[in-house]
Design a binder for these strands. Structure first.
Length: 256
DNA sequence: ATGGTGGCGCGGCCA
């Protein structure tokens, strides 16, 4: 089972990039974030034409998530347990015996801001939600734009970014708490090239200079991580004309 | 460099 995640920064602008990538990469599940499209305008037919099912939770202008999948989604949930949030950032669904959570974690803007507090509260709610899912489901995988670089290895310039948003100790501790609950960062289950990133700012030639961060993650429950046979970042879509600022991350699992 | 680039939607917010 091949599971992928991609923050597309507007699905309507990136639709051709996404459908081309689906044809080439052939994932079983693809979580999309920042679709920035309402459900009424969601381009479902473009995915159905390729033999995929799609589930989505959108809103105008901001946020929005969707999951594209070979199997039809079951038991779709679009909110974190016990956490009211008008922002559409969550889409959970079951495929076979795998519970998939597709997540667009709040960016947080800057350390100490109101949005930072919101991010930390949101992550606490996610932690609680994931612990419940681990009890309720055989396999759990949480994918998405976590807006957290787990480690200094995931930052092009750890000195410049030290303590900043996406890298601050409280964000990293929140992610650490989730991992302690029973998840592994699939990318780090394998040897990887140094300076592997999944997001590069549009500004100042950041991609050309590889000034990036690895903030798009695939977290596999401990049992599922034992079945993980690979995890990689596909940089190619970031090189296309008018790209998303993020690029896809893919993990493969050998399931019976 | 309180800049820089991009999306949404048409002014200013968000990332």
């Amino acid at each position: 089972m091949k599971i992928a995640t991609w923050n597309v920064n507007s699905l309507r602008v990136r639709l051709e990039h996404v459908t081309d990538w689906l044809k080439q990469a052939q994932p079983d599940v693809l979580g999309l974030q920042e679709t920035k499209v309402t459900d009424e305008l969601f381009p479902a037919a473009d995915f159905e034409d390729l033999g995929y099912h799609v589930a989505y939770s959108g809103q105008p202008t901001y946020n929005g998530v969707a999951v594209v999948s070979r199997l039809p989604p079951a038991d779709v949930v679009v909110d974190l347990e016990g956490y009211d949030d008008p922002a559409r950032r969550v889409l959970c669904a079951t495929y076979g015996d795998v519970r998939v959570l597709n997540l667009y974690v709040p960016n947080g803007q800057s350390v100490g801001s109101e949005k930072y507090d919101y991010k930390l509260a949101w992550l606490a709610a996610l932690d609680a939600h994931l612990r419940q899912d681990l009890e309720r489901h055989k396999h759990v995988v949480a994918v998405g734009d976590f807006n957290i670089a787990p480690d200094d290895r995931d930052v092009h310039d750890p000195v410049q970014w030290e303590g900043k948003i996406l890298c601050s100790p409280r964000e990293r501790a929140a992610l650490g708490g989730i991992l302690e609950a029973g998840f592994k960062d699939a990318f780090r289950l394998f040897e990887q090239e140094e300076k592997s990133f999944s997001w590069w700012d549009y500004r100042q030639g950041a991609f050309r200079r590889n000034n990036g961060l690895r903030i798009d993650l695939i977290l596999a429950s401990d049992d599922l991580s034992a079945a993980c046979t690979g995890c990689s970042i596909d940089v190619a879509p970031r090189r296309l004309q008018r790209p998303s600022d993020h690029t896809p991350v893919v993990a493969e699992f050998s399931l019976p």
